Amino acid sequence: MSADSPADEVRRAVSAVMDPELRLPIGELDMVREVVVTGDVAEVAIALTIVGCPAADRIEREVRAAAAGVAGIGRVDVAVGVMSPAERAALTERLRGGRRRMPFGPESLTRVIAVTSGKGGVGKSTVTANLAVALAGRGLAVGLIDADVHGFSIPALLGLVGRDGLPPQPTRVDDLMLPPVAYGVKAISIGMFLPRGERGGGAVAWRGPMLHRTIQQFLTDVYFGDLDVLLIDMPPGTGDVAISVGQTLPHAEVVVVTTPQTAAADVAIRSALVARQTGQKVVGVIENMAAMTLPDGTVLELFGAGGGAAVAQALSTDEDVPLLGSIPLDAQVRVGGDTGAPIVVSHPDDPAARAILSVAERLVARPRGLAGRALPVTPR
């Protein structure tokens, strides 16, 4: 058996470099072209997916480092080109798996969890963002869709903002969108597509058909790759988006967020009932802004007590709906939201962070029904 040539060794090393947006090796993406080794000089040609690829500098730098790491290579020259339209079309078709339908249907092995609330202001988006980061921290592949189109906040909560203070725009490879990644979470939000230059990224004033189309595009045209969990940050209430998501993802699991306050708890129950009408399964309740312990040991119940347990009990009619956890009121949660540093990362030992991490553990430990799902197993 003959030994590999220096060019083969360089090609193997370079092919293992990961595309930071697609999260796949560039060799697997057919981005490595000619590799020539003359003496101790390696010449490597690569083709990026699009002109102006935001990851170009990083890919070139890592290709250069990978080639230089091969024994006997003293200098590396990298030539950077761009895929042809035909090559790009072939790549997007391969990434889609030859399918143009929504990849998170009932047969998918991805666990889809919609996080909802009856009313705004209960911290639903903050809880969702922290849950996503907590799950990614456990080694899971996590995607996050900001379905709160009118009140989008996920990009800011994850620190996905540029120097202009606006969310980064996803890279487009033909009609496929590559979601930005923060803390290991692939996230998409309407805030990434609005006109630049306006504080907050502008406002969205859309009705049902536009909202439905947006959700459909997020589910179909965004390349998340293989996910373990897809979280959906739902808008509060029982409006058009809740109905669209329910009709599109009737197999999704639903987690309800409420505060201990009775008024918030009563409204939260309604959002869960609408989810059930579309066939979705309510798997738990999260109580946010629960009692906090002050430095002198005093317990402050700023929003009352018992709301989360009351919602869980009210929903436990035909089947048990557990209270997954109570997240205490914590100033660091607010600070993390303002700075884009989720508390589960910035202050993992704070009581609120520990409560969120515990909820994440309970969610992933929950058994899944695989009826109707095509398992990736080939009979022999």
Rank of each mutant, 00 (worst) to 15 (best):
G105T: 12
G151Q: 05
L24N: 02
M289D: 04
F224V: 07
S189D: 10
G165M: 13
M1L: 07
T110N: 11
R101N: 09
Q261A: 12
V311G: 09
V149A: 03
I269G: 04
A268R: 09
G159E: 04
G184P: 02
G372F: 02
P180M: 08
T110C: 15
Q217C: 03
M83Y: 07
D240F: 09
R368Y: 02
V161W: 01
V149E: 06
M31E: 01
D164I: 10
L294S: 09
V222N: 02
I145Q: 02
E93I: 00
T126I: 04
I356P: 00
G151Y: 06
A341E: 14
V229G: 08
I215A: 07
I215L: 15
M1W: 03
A156Y: 09
F218R: 00
A290D: 07
E93N: 03
R58T: 14
G184Q: 11
I188Q: 03
Q277N: 14
M83D: 03
I243D: 06
P367F: 12
L22D: 05
A310Y: 07
G39Y: 09
V333N: 03
M289R: 08
P180D: 06
A45F: 00
A7I: 01
L329E: 05
D146H: 04
S125C: 12
F224S: 08
M210S: 00
V76F: 03
R12P: 07
G307V: 13
V133M: 10
H251I: 01
T298W: 03
G72R: 03
A331H: 08
I145F: 13
V14T: 07
D4L: 15
L231K: 05
S326Q: 15
Q277H: 14
V256L: 14
V149I: 15
P348Q: 00
A187M: 15
G162S: 04
E9M: 13
V63N: 03
I343H: 02
A45V: 02
I59H: 05
M292W: 01
G137S: 12
P103T: 04
L302M: 15
V256D: 14
V255G: 06
Q217A: 08
D228C: 08
A365G: 15
A309V: 03
P260I: 12
V36W: 01
V10P: 00
L166W: 06
L178S: 07
D148K: 06
S326F: 00
V142H: 05
